[in-house]
Design a protein around this nucleic acid. Sequence first.
DNA 1: CGATTAACCTGGAAGC
DNA 2: TGCTTCCAGGTTAATC
Length: 288
Amino acid sequence: MPELPEVETVRRGLEPVLTGATIRAVDQRRPDLRFPFPERFAERLTGARIEGVGRRAKFLMFPLSTGETVLGHLGMTGRFSVEEGAKTLEPGAFYAPDPPKGHEHLRLDLRKAGGGRAFVTYSDPRRFGFFEIVQTVEIEDTPRFRALGPEPLGNGFHAQALLEKLSGRKMPLKAALLDQSVVAGLGNIYVCEALYLAGLSPRRKACTVGATRAGRLVAAIRDVLTKAIEAGGSTLRDYAAADGKQGAFQQQFHVYDREGDACGQCGREVQRIVQSGRSTFFCGGCQK
DNA sequence: CGATTAACCTGGAAGC
DNA sequence: TGCTTCCAGGTTAATC
């Protein structure tokens, strides 16, 4: 579900709770999600201090005091929620949330940096999410990250870089932008929106994008992601930030999930087509 | 090698 | 009120 803006929103929600917190206990309810949990997952986390919360593309990174970093991917329906406990861990101040149920697969029992207690629960009905553990010093060299293209909001993402990635690619531009090795972090929503803003057809062959159009596309991608993060991401069905708040960017969609609506630019109806098995929304009048 | 398709899961909405 | 079919913010193994 979550694309880069939603993952960034989750990161911002978790950061103040997790940074400096110590993991007192790990409640892992099943051996696998999309993939098996890492070996001895709970054991390797227990007792560790969480040094911060980072993000790369759609991955959350939780570097630990042990020299290992937990990578988390939310898949389609992954979600973190936070329950703050009492201010202290003194006797009598004990606090416990309801036991995990339904699709709550993982819960961390935390002693916060300031001394309070918090529970962080990961739920994921479809179980397309997953967790991995990598050595922090090798993180950029890990197979998972080596396969990723540049961060769209970072300095490594510019017209020339995108041009090179698209050259020789005969696939539709839409499909190329969903490829995480071209640019990392886009998903179905923001690809549709960025193509609309750039005035480019999702059906155009990727290799037909020249320097000028690549520049427009880079600007459009940056623009839509920045505004989506400011709005707290998009909530369509079940996405929510770690604090339970819903995103608001869906109110700013120009084309996504708006089949039949009038294009705000030219008035033509927004079309829906299927590309590589997924819905694409676009305006045939504005996107060439 | 590059490029579509199927598969992994569950739940909600829409159609009959 | 069922029962069926379709669809969903993603990734990846299999197939063409």
